[in-house]
Design a protein around this nucleic acid. Structure first.
Lengths: 351, 351
DNA sequence: CTGAAAGCGCTAACAT
DNA sequence: ATGTTAGCGCTTTCAG
């Protein structure tokens, strides 16, 4: 029964592989150099106040001299936490998710956390898998998954926790969610448009299956019954510039005087399309967007749109996650009430 | 000399803390349940072909039953690699870096790698620190650092490796770099503009200290000497919509017939500003951008700009990093030659 | 205040 | 083909 393994606590080891970048210093080497135990080095590196200042200085000097950097992997294992949080989104090219990424990145970064990012490319099943995997490499998760079915999310809730949901609320899911009141936003748009005398509206629908699109559509569908004399047409469209651009012809064809676009990119695309077709905005047709992406102010004419607190969502997501991770509970779900921003793309109905 | 520690290789341990999420299964538990050794479980989980199929099945069943997921932290430590790569950028709201993020995210994701993202908020020193830290949690790094001084980067090269630099080339740095030939891009713009008869150009400069801005500016400064009769004014501006927008008045004031904007956002801002001032584009003034962000096609008029392979940069960055990480060497630096995209915002010089 | 020692959960020689 | 065993590098009781 060999005992030698027990004898050299801090001594040189054999080491077959090289997990550390070549000759990286380890805590043992620093301990040796400073003539103290590994425990003391650990204490110093973690700023424990109960260390003799003189020793601490010696340790710091040794660490410096050896270019010592604690192994993140070893700390993760010993500590049982990663120090990271993860974000999973359907599409990184969508300004909405970019804002969340940004808000989260800044908030988490300020708190000294790493941020893991994964993109599902709009595939709901992939999203769930990525979320699971991301979660294994992080202590918490922010999930934007507008397409995954409610049940799927509920089924995975346990394994994903702690996590927070953005741009979406799933009934019966035990995770804080931060969402947008789409119906309210559409309500404002419609009130604005009908107030301007518009009676024939057309909705440029977002991707089928998108929860946001479903809510906006539902809110819109309720209008003709509620406001007398208002008609609504719905055109399948999409979520990108190109989709809106391509829809312009169909828009004029359907004879509506106002187009409610799924989002700002679509709205902006349709603006360009209409211009190419020689249709004046807002003279002949009014156009509204949704989201208030940075670009919306700079379209021609500037886009009337529904503003939602995009960066705030990222910041809040962090705050909720932080609370969850420190066992404080996630708090109430919140639903942000969007605000209508009237700019130049809407005007009185013609005729 | 206690020997008991040696006796229980796989036996139950005392376990003071709970590094694993509550009652998470460990490889030992699975081994026990399946009646095999931990080594075998490890082999099965990693798809080693040298395992008896029957045993493998038993192991998989046990793993399934226990909801076993290998601890990422433990693997990192044992394997000596993280399975992740990191990206550090100055500003996540910049479309340029968003594209790189996207390209990298997709390429790395496809290769089963996690992606760590950090944003320096334009602070060069912070960038370097973030890079160092990110690097400790990833096996490789993609760094976009347009502002950090050359020497600083050279000094840290060793500790950052393996890494690749994007949108920038640092002489003497031992890291592959993927960059844009800014001078060539400006060259095309100038040729186009002078060909159209423009003689008085104004450059809307980007952030001082930006390497890209410096190169574009230098290329522009060389013009008056080379092309007879051409004058160049330079206006401090910035990199955002708002900066361009605010510069519109100064642009008309300076009497130039063509404005060369630092990038597409600035160009787009100035387009809006000029419109508000009642200046016709391209009738009275021509405007060019740089980068060809997705929005550039949808401004009014559509922006003439310099197209650079944004997503390609991300993909290539991954490819280079992959090669580097597997010891294949980083290959040659590459400098992409941009392409002029003539759209509607440029036209013949007036008069 | 410091050190010794026991893990954290997994992998990979090495031996069988 | 499978098991044994020795780590990976750090943290943290527990003694002193």
């Amino acid at each position: 029964m060999s005992e030698e393994g027990l004898l050299d606590g801090a001594g040189a080891r054999r080491g077959r592989r090289g997990p550390r970048p070549a000759g990286q210093a380890t805590i043992s080497r620093v301990a040796e150099a400073a003539g103290v135990s590994r425990a003391t080095v650990s204490r110093v590196m973690n700023g424990s106040p109960t260390v003799n200042p003189e020793l601490a200085a010696r340790v710091r000097a040794a660490a410096e001299a050896l270019d010592y950097e604690p192994s993140a992997a070893a700390r993760r294992l010993a500590l049982g936490r990663t120090g990271a949080v993860a974000l999973v989104v359907p599409d990184l090219s969508n300004p909405l998710f970019q804002s969340v990424l940004r808000g989260l990145s800044q908030a988490a970064g300020k708190a000294g956390r790493q941020l893991l990012v994964a993109e599902s490319d709009e595939d709901p099943e992939e999203e769930v898998i990525l979320a699971l995997e991301a979660r294994r490499n992080a202590d918490g998760l922010v999930l934007a998954s507008p397409r995954a079915p409610d049940e799927r999310l509920r089924a995975l809730g346990e394994r994903l926790a702690p996590f927070v949901l953005v741009y979406r609320e799933v009934p019966g899911l035990d995770a804080p969610s931060l969402s947008i009141d789409n119906a309210a936003g559409i309500g404002e748009v419609v009130a604005h448009l009908t107030g301007l005398g518009h009676r024939r509206l057309v909705y440029l629908a977002g991707p089928p299956g998108s929860a946001g699109n479903a809510e906006r559509l539902a809110a819109l569908r309720a209008v003709p019954g509620a406001v007398p004399g208002v008609e609504l047409a719905v055109l399948a469209c999409g979520s990108m510039f190109g989709h809106g651009h391509a829809a312009a012809a169909r828009v004029v064809e359907c004879g509506a005087s106002a187009v409610v676009a799924f989002n700002d990119m679509v709205a902006s695309g349709v603006l360009t399309g209409l211009r190419e077709l020689g249709v004046r905005v807002p003279g002949e047709v009014s156009v509204t967007g949704f989201d208030d992406i940075p670009f919306a102010r700079y379209t021609t004419p500037p886009l009337t749109t529904v503003s939602i607190p995009q960066n705030e969502l990222g910041r809040q997501a962090w705050e909720r996650l932080r609370a969850l991770m420190s066992g404080e509970g996630g708090g109430y779900n919140v639903c942000y009430r969007p605000r209508l921003l009237v700019r130049g793309s809407t005007g009185p109905a013609p005729g």
